[in-house]
Computed example of a mutant assay.
Amino acid sequence: MDMVGGGAPKPVAVVVDDDFLIRMDVASTLEDAGFDTLEASDADKAITLLADTCESVALLFTDVQMPGSRDGFALAREVARRWPDIGIVVASGTRRPGPDEMPEGATFIAKPFGAETVHEHLCKVLPKERRPAPLKDRA
C-alpha cells in the first residue's frame, strides 16, 4: 500500500467489473483520486477479497451485470450488511436500480461516465474523514 503525507496509508477501493478495460479505467480514475485499488472480475471474487482486506477498504465500486452467483446490486447489499463502513458506488450502462435493489447510502452511476462524475459520487458516499487527500476539500 502506498503512503501519503505523514506515512498514513491511502484508502483502498475495490473495483468489480468483468470487463478488464472498464475495470482498469475505473481503477485508474480512483487512483488519480487518491486511492489504492484492488480489482475483482465478479462478486464472488470481490467478497473473498473484502473478507481478507475489509479493515483497509473504504470503497466498493461495482458494475451490475457480471458472471457468477450475484450481480452488482446483490454484492452492494451484502457489502453494506457485512461491512457498513464501506462506501458503495454501483454503475451500469444497461440496468437502473429498482426499489430496494440499492443499499441505503449507496449511489448509482449510469455508464458511460467521466472522472468528474465519479469524484462527485465518491463525495456522496464517503464522509470527509474517509476520503483520500485529493477529495477532502470537495463539497
Rank of each mutant, 00 (worst) to 15 (best):
T62Y: 03
Q65V: 14
A33R: 14
E55R: 14
E120C: 01
A8T: 13
K124I: 14
V79L: 13
A43G: 10
G34V: 10
T94I: 15
C123F: 02
D2N: 13
P84M: 10
D36A: 13
S41Y: 00
W83K: 02
K10D: 00
L30M: 10
I22H: 00
S56Q: 12
A115S: 12
F35Y: 14
H119C: 01
I88N: 09
A91M: 12
R130N: 06
M3P: 01
A74N: 00
R70C: 05
K45Y: 06
P9G: 08
G105F: 03
R130A: 08
W83M: 01
A43Q: 00
C54D: 07
S92Y: 04
L59M: 08
M66F: 14
E31G: 06
L50R: 04
A110E: 09
L50P: 06
E120Y: 05
G72Y: 08
A13S: 14
V57F: 11
M102E: 03
T62V: 06
A33I: 07
D85S: 11
A13K: 09
E120M: 03
F35R: 07
M1I: 08
S41D: 03
A74L: 06
A27P: 02
L21G: 00
R82D: 05
T94W: 11
A139H: 00
E78K: 09
L75E: 04
P112H: 10
R82E: 05
A115P: 08
A46E: 03
P11R: 12
L60C: 03
P99Q: 15
P97H: 07
R138F: 00
T37C: 13
V118R: 12
A133D: 07
R70S: 14
L21T: 04
G7T: 14
M24A: 09
A110I: 08
L21K: 04
V118T: 14
R138N: 01
G87R: 06
F108Y: 14
A80L: 11
G98P: 10
R138D: 00
I86L: 02
T53S: 08
R77V: 11
T117N: 01
G6Q: 09
V14C: 15
K128I: 08
T29C: 10
D25C: 09
T94Y: 15
L38S: 12
E129Q: 05
A13V: 10
L135I: 02
P97F: 10
A58W: 03
E55L: 07
G6V: 00
W83V: 02
G98A: 09
M1G: 11
G114D: 15
G114C: 03
P112G: 08
L50M: 09
P103D: 14
H121L: 11
V89Q: 13
C54K: 13
P97V: 10
D19M: 03
R81K: 15
K136R: 13
I47H: 01
R82N: 07
V16L: 05
P67Q: 05
H121M: 12
T117Y: 01
L49I: 11
V118K: 08
S28M: 07
A27L: 02
E55T: 14
E120W: 01
I88S: 15
L38T: 06
